[in-house]
Simulated scan of single mutants.
Amino acid sequence: MARGGEWGINKAARGKWVWGCSYKKTTLIVCSINIVVALYVLRSLYASLYIYSDRESHPTVEYTPDQIRKMEESVRIRKSAEPVELIRLVKKLKKELSTEVSVVELSEPLKLKITNEIIDKLKTLPPNANVTEQRDFAERWCNKKLEEAKQLIRERGTSNSTILLEEAVMLVKALESDRTLLLEDIGLWIPSEVVNKEHDDKPEGEVDELADEVLPGRPLPPECHAELHTDYDGAAVRWGLNHHKESAADCCQACLVQAKRAKPNEKKCNVWVYCPAEMGCHSPDIYEHRLGECWLKYAETPKLNFKDKYPESYRNAHPSAPIIVPWASGIVGAA
């Protein structure tokens, strides 16, 4: 009897335990289902809001088959109209230009050194040296400097001056890239022969913008033979960069005085060139030529650099050049 009572108690306890576990499991399952459903509902609401806003910001456009056919035809026509050969040539030209050697910039001390040297060498030229002789002289000087610089580089192991070696390398690069630009950069510009022809092709009634102009300042004496918008060539006996005068008459007077006081072995001024423009005067060198600049020159047979207007070919090569020559010049003692 005692054993039967004990079995009954165990059975009742076991049933209670089984029932208690089933209730907890059921509760957990229901809660989990509720959480899953809530998450699904929230996700659906978020997705619908995103799709709705995206459609409003990026409205879809539906094209008809006929519209699609026309667009494809338009693309085909545009591609067939492309200048394929021109594009190929432009790309080839860009590639060639990108491989060109850029102009070498010289240091200021080196630039000053070679400027002073070539000025001293120019003084050894005969007084009647023409443009061709001056150009040949500049070419010989460039060849000599190039050989000297290369020789210094070859002997760099025995050279004690690092600065001289660096200058030699810069000079070799500059002379081998573009000598004309190098000479213009140091202020030496030897003009080409310029033939100025008179053309009477001005339309009837057109006002000549060069006529009736007067040089500012006091009147010039007749022996100055002043010519407006004129630039004469010649060997400089006095550089105008640091030689300024108040007027063209004063510049001409300075030329007359220099010729009168020149020593027997010195060149006598017979050409004066003056800058009367308030904004300065154009020149292809690196210097800024200001108002009042007065150049004193000598030339056995004075020749024109430019007269009245710069040629179109010159302006194409020098985009900063104005149309009208700003300088005023005169040949002292000319008939």
Rank of each mutant, 00 (worst) to 15 (best):
G5P: 08
N10G: 11
N10F: 14
G15Y: 05
V18D: 05
K25A: 13
L28H: 11
N34C: 14
L42Q: 09
S44L: 07
L49K: 10
Y52A: 14
R55T: 15
E56R: 08
H58W: 09
V61Q: 10
P65V: 03
R69A: 14
K79N: 12
E82I: 12
L86T: 15
L86I: 13
K92H: 14
L93R: 13
L97K: 14
S98G: 12
N116L: 14
K121T: 04
K121G: 11
T124G: 15
P126D: 15
P127Y: 00
P127L: 03
P127K: 02
A129S: 15
N130I: 01
D136S: 10
R140E: 15
A149T: 00
Q151M: 11
L164Q: 11
D178L: 06
T180L: 07
L188K: 02
V195N: 03
P203T: 03
V207F: 08
C224D: 04
E227H: 10
H229G: 01
D231P: 00
G240E: 08
G240F: 05
G240R: 02
N242W: 04
A249F: 03
Q253R: 13
V257H: 09
R261H: 09
K263N: 07
N265S: 05
N265H: 04
K268V: 02
W272A: 07
V273C: 05
H282Y: 15
Y298T: 01
A299H: 10
E300G: 10
T301W: 02
Y310F: 15
E312L: 05
S313T: 14
R315T: 01
I323G: 08
P326L: 01
G333P: 06
